[in-house]
Design a protein around this nucleic acid. Structure first.
Lengths: 251, 251
DNA sequence: CGGCCGCTTGACTATTATCAAAGATGGTGG
DNA sequence: CCACCATCTTTGATAATAGTCAAGCGGCCG
């Protein structure tokens, strides 16, 4: 039981952010979360409020019920790096005893909390929950690796395409439409997540819009009208294909 | 035992690549490795040879005895991303059932192998080994997070400083001198690791040399003559201090 | 000895950051 | 209820960092 728990770590096929929960695991998920988190304390965190700070000792593990969180870190000179986001259904606070990043609500966010002790108990008592926990840790690892690729080699265009595809994939896995995504975070968060500036983010959105890849009425709702081409961009197919060609022409 | 194993994950204080093995853990380490890896098959991998490829199913877990490995991934258009390196004492192959990256020897590398089954057994039988495994996974996670920061926000100068400091810290933890580092990998590997080009790496080395931060006789041996200033650069203290000032003047 | 590979350096280009300012949007107080 | 203010987003002009293209140097191995 123990042996398999640590080593039986499933890795996503691609540099995708979401855990590739198999269908069965996905089915189990809501029951599991309810079983273990419902009896924990519930918490409501207003937008821009901090759940924990870098250096804090972890006291609770949370399940995001609604809203969204950002994980970020401040460099000494004020530059900020956003490591990732958490959305409803995600379990956050696993992986380290001392938090390595700040966690902030980017919207009004509802969380269910479990104490560390309760997590320990649940892990030993419930193999399915143990798998869930391990899947979350594994997911975090492959997500981080994927993100390294995105920020170290992709162009601004490719990074934003990747970001949108990431959210689209998440929607699809959740049974929602993959052809539109909600952006609960501000442009600054996206910029700091992708290693770019808000101006570049904004300009790239405009480029995408003019190229017919997306449509936006409000900044926080994006319709992926050219999902196929976005996918090509997101995977880093550089200059090999025509989609980029047409994009350059349109830009 | 099981409960603590997954959640009792120690995280490095900083965005450093090496696990912050406490003194006691470090002391245990050699015994542990010998106990569990000595009876496994030993393997000698020539430079530039591949240990595993992306997509391969994991069959073995290895302990690096000598030499060095690189973990990398190829983008569709030929761009390469180096995710990290492994040096003697590192345990590699944990964390996912299907390898997410290629593993290549960058030197003649000696490895001791354990089958997955043996790892499972050892984890359940030996709590200390379980801690070691969990420390490696935890280390990989925080290492990946730290690397995201490096490649997403730091300048070329800061990235290379960070890289050198990383290796210096490793030396110090191992009881070796922190004031010089060996670079077993080629410039191309460093470039792909830091998200830069070989030309930029080379130029930055030259800048460091002219600024008195380092000294080099051969490309693979670097004396960190200005370790203090390198540390400041590595932490991303941007333009706040004088070290960068003097560096700009010297460049 | 010669060719190959890796490192360094130079000239130029290009992508993205920076600086600046003008619309939107949303919330608050008069 | 409307006006004002703050905040966020978009757009424009310019600058800087790193990339690209190209060539020369040096060591190592056949």
């Amino acid at each position: 039981m123990f042996d398999s728990s640590l080593t039986h770590i499933e890795t996503p096929l691609q540099d995708v952010v979401e855990p590739q929960h198999s269908v069965q695991l996905r089915v189990e998920l809501s029951q599991l979360l309810n079983r273990h988190f419902l009896h924990g304390a519930s918490r409501k965190l207003p937008a821009a409020h901090r759940l924990w700070s870098e250096g804090d000792r972890r006291a609770q593990v949370y399940c995001v019920r609604s809203g969204a969180l950002s994980f970020s870190r401040m460099l000494p000179d004020g530059r900020r790096v956003v490591i990732g986001f958490a959305y409803p259904g995600d379990i956050v606070g696993l992986g380290s005893e001392v938090h390595a990043f700040d966690a902030d609500a980017i919207q009004l966010t509802k969380l269910d909390a479990m104490s560390i002790g309760a997590v320990h108990q649940a892990v030993s008592a419930d193999p399915a929950f143990a798998r869930l926990v391990q899947a979350e840790v594994s997911h975090a690892l492959s997500s981080a690796y994927g993100h390294v690729i995105v920020v170290s080699k992709l162009t601004a265009t490719e990074r934003l395409a990747h970001f949108l595809v990431e959210l689209s994939e998440r929607n699809r896995r959740r049974g929602n439409s993959p052809s539109s995504v909600l952006l609960p975070m501000r442009r600054a968060d996206i910029a700091d997540y992708l290693g770019l500036t808000i101006e570049t983010i904004s300009r790239t959105f405009t480029t995408f819009r003019k190229a017919g890849l997306i449509a936006m009425d409000e900044p926080s709702v994006v319709f992926l009208t050219g999902l196929r081409r976005l996918l090509v961009l997101a995977s880093g197919n550089g200059d090999a294909d025509q989609p980029v060609e047409s994009l350059r022409l349109a830009a």
